[in-house]
């Protein structure tokens, strides 16, 4: 049994978006949105606590699978993530990804927290460190201008090397 209290936030990213909480929530759970800002991945989520969660690549393969641990529209979405579709990522312990949406004046404050229950080394977190700011700024751009940012990202070399080292241990 996974104890959520044991998960410690390792990455916390915040962005302000000029949109309503409901629109931001929609952008998080609607595949038509996520495809635009989440490196092309389509979300597939059962809208309830305990529901299944997947991120699907364009070819239909599963990139990340997981389980919804909190479903409180339009304020909080929490998902236990397990990377499955990436080579070498399969043995990694799951991490907890939480989105918090809060109205602040005219804008919405969106906080993304990536929490781990083990002392994941920094180089292993480097993929998320590089990826999340791009995802969040692109999400902001989709909601505010209707257009995603055209960000080309290389595979996270440092992270892949760290995974190799982890396997060799």
């Amino acid at each position: 049994m996974i104890d959520i209290a044991k998960f410690k936030p390792r990455i916390v990213y915040v962005t302000y978006i000029a949109a309503s909480p409901e629109r931001v929530w929609q952008a998080l759970i609607d595949p038509a949105f996520t495809r635009q800002y989440f490196f092309g991945f389509a979300i597939d989520v059962e809208p309830r606590k305990g529901g299944a969660f997947r991120l699907l690549a364009a070819d239909g393969s599963t990139h990340v699978s997981g389980e919804v641990t909190e479903w409180s529209p339009p304020n909080r979405l929490s998902v236990m993530w397990k990377a499955v579709g990436m080579k070498d990522f399969g043995d990694l312990p799951e991490c907890l990804v939480t989105y918090d949406i809060a109205q602040t004046g005219e804008a919405v404050r969106l906080t993304m927290t990536e929490a781990h229950q083990w002392d994941a080394p920094d180089d292993l977190l480097s993929g998320g460190r590089a990826g999340w700011p791009a995802i969040l700024s692109s999400l902001k751009s989709v909601l505010e201008t209707g257009k995603p940012l055209s960000i080309k990202m290389e595979p996270p070399k440092e992270m892949l090397a760290a995974l190799e080292r982890l396997k060799a241990r």
Partner: peptide, 19 residues
Amino acid sequence: ATVRRGREKLHYLNPVPIH
């Protein structure tokens, strides 16, 4: 960005504005 965890307040670097 800050996160409350139990009695602790933890501080995190948020690079999103720089991005």
